[in-house]
């Protein structure tokens, strides 16, 4: 049977590609080192399939139709945003496993939407560009949660999505070694007056809850508190919650944390480790 063998939280900041030289050299080197560490760990763990959880940034889904949770089951290419300055590519999707996850979830009443032909934004393409593509022959399965248009997905539903991912992988009769990656920044204010600031106290509170495996503690933080303390972008912590739920009783091990004003984000890398 397929199995989940790894979990991570990583950023998907578009400025990593659009303004790679913006932060001081020592700061940006910490971020590149963290990506290298994640790549090395994925290789060590012989991961061949990555379920990458992210959100839309009002580039993909119009307010006319907003899925709360969506899985890509067909063609995926990107990035949608030309200003990232990175090559537009077709991404390698594990279509069979994605379809299985969709059908298994539907049978359990999960409110999955799906895409057969996705033009992905930076939430999927930045992690692919800086991380996943460095794994030879690895395939990905993009999962989108609505963390941008009110009413955003509840953290409780993000947990259910994570659990549904885990259940589906466990019933897939293949030998895939799967990583679950929750992508997104911690504090950041996108388009808001505080854009460019970070809140290290809030960031470290989130990192601490992940480190202790306290999903309930994360879920209990209201959306209003997240936005007030960490900005609208911090709602991306729901992708981290989803990944943690997929890993079960995982605790987070900090790889790197930097509040980077030049990239307008509190940036956290963690490895999600299951209890032995």
């Amino acid at each position: 049977m397929a199995q989940i063998v790894a979990g991570f939280t990583i950023p998907h900041i578009p400025l990593l590609a659009a303004k790679p030289e913006a932060p001081p050299a020592d700061v940006r080197q910490k971020i590149w080192n963290a990506f290298d560490h994640v790549i090395d760990r994925l290789k060590q763990l012989q991961v061949d399939t990555i379920i990458t959880i992210g959100d839309d940034h009002c580039w993909m889904f119009s307010p006319e139709c907003v899925p709360q949770c969506l899985i890509a089951i067909g063609d995926v290419s990107g990035p949608r945003e030309k200003w990232l300055g990175i090559e537009h590519v077709d991404l390698p999707v594990h279509e069979d496993l994605a379809m299985h996850i969709l059908r298994a979830g539907q049978s359990m009443g999960m409110p999955w939407a799906f895409s057969k032909h996705m033009l992905a934004d930076h939430a999927t393409v930045i992690p692919y560009h800086f991380c996943y593509r460095h794994l030879q022959d690895a395939k990905i399965i993009p999962v989108y949660l609505n963390e941008t248009i009110d009413p955003v997905i509840s953290s409780a539903l993000a947990c259910r999505v994570g659990a549904a991912l885990a259940d589906a992988v466990s019933t897939w009769p293949g030998t895939e070694r799967v990583a679950i990656v929750g992508t997104g920044g911690i504090s950041h204010w996108v388009g808001m007056a505080d854009m460019g600031e970070t809140n290290e106290e809030f960031d470290r509170r989130i990192l601490s809850l992940v480190a202790s495996g306290d999903i309930d503690g994360l879920v209990k933080i209201s959306d209003e508190d997240i936005v007030r303390e960490g900005g609208n972008g911090a709602l991306e912590v729901k992708s981290w919650i989803c990944a943690m739920a997929a890993l079960g009783s995982a605790r987070g091990r900090l790889i790197a944390y930097e509040p980077v004003a030049e990239w307008i984000t509190g940036i956290g890398f963690m490895e999600l480790e299951r209890a032995a």
């Binding site: 940034h57 009002c58 580039w59 307010p63 200003w83 941008t148 248009i149 009110d150 204010w189 996108v190 388009g191 808001m192 609208n232």
Partner: peptide, 15 residues
């Protein structure tokens, strides 16, 4: 929505 507002502003006036 802040992201929509910033996105539209950038589209009209440039990044």
């Amino acid at each position: 929505n802040w992201m929509l507002m910033m996105g539209a502003y950038q589209a009209l006036h440039g990044r």
